[in-house]
Design a binder for these strands. Structure first.
Length: 255
DNA sequence: ATGCCTCAGCTCCTGAGA
């Protein structure tokens, strides 16, 4: 079973690239973030024609998530139950006995801002909910744009970006606490190329200079850890004329 | 440079992303 996550930064703009990517990479599950569209605009027919069921949860202008799957997805959940949020950030469903959670973590803007405080509250709520999900589903994959680096190896300039957003100790504490529930960063289960990133700033030739961050993660539960065959960041879509600033991350699990 | 690029929207500028 191959599962992937991709922040597309507007599905309206990126739909042709997503369809082309699915044709070249016929994964079993793909979760999308930053679709930036209301639910009535979601291109479900295009994905159906490509052989994918879809679940989606969006809003105007910002955020928006979706879950595409080769097989039927059941028991869909939108956002974190019990956590009031007017932003569409989470979609979860069960596909082929695996609980899949696709998430677009808050950006947080900068430490000390209201958006950073919201990010901390959101992370606490996510953790409490994922704990209960893990109790019910031993096989679980949580993946998405986590907007947090694990450590300096995920940062192109750890000195210059020390304590800035995505790199603060407070954010990393929450990411570690999430993983400590019984999850594993699939990327780090394998030897990876040095300076592996999943996001690059559009400005200043960030991708060309490989000035990036690894903030898109695939986290697998204890029960799946031994079955993960590979985890790769696919930079191929960056060759498109108007690429997303994020690359897809793919995990291959023997299920 | 509290910017650089990209996207959405009550669109010819502004807010947000990361």
């Amino acid at each position: 079973m191959k599962l992937a996550t991709w922040n597309v930064n507007s599905l309206t703009v990126r739909l042709p690239q997503v369809l082309e990517w699915l044709h070249a990479n016929p994964v079993d599950v793909l979760v999308l973030q930053e679709t930036k569209m209301t639910d009535d605009k979601f291109p479900a027919a295009d994905f159906a024609a490509a052989g994918y069921f879809a679940q989606w949860f969006g809003q105007k202008t910002y955020n928006g998530v979706a879950l595409l799957s080769r097989n039927h997805a059941v028991s869909m959940v939108k956002n974190i139950p019990g956590f009031a949020d007017d932003m569409a950030r989470v979609i979860a469903a069960t596909v082929d006995s695996v609980r899949v959670i696709g998430a677009y973590f808050p950006n947080g803007q900068a430490p000390g801002t209201e958006k950073f405080e919201y990010k901390m509250f959101w992370l606490k709520a996510l953790r409490a909910w994922v704990r209960t999900e893990l109790e019910q589903h031993a096989k679980l994959v949580l993946m998405g744009d986590c907007n947090i680096t694990f450590d300096d190896a995920d940062v192109w300039d750890p000195v210059g970006l020390k304590d800035t957003i995505h790199c603060t100790e407070e954010e990393r504490y929450h990411l570690r606490a999430l993983v400590a529930l019984g999850l594993h960063d699939a990327h780090r289960l394998f030897e990876q190329p040095a300076k592996s990133y999943s996001w690059w700033d559009y400005r200043d030739f960030g991708f060309r200079r490989n000035r990036g961050l690894r903030i898109d993660h695939v986290l697998v539960s204890d029960a799946l850890k031994a079955d993960v065959r590979a985890c790769t960041i696919d930079k191929a879509p960056r060759k498109n004329e108007r690429p997303s600033d994020h690359a897809p991350v793919i995990a291959d699990i023997a299920i």
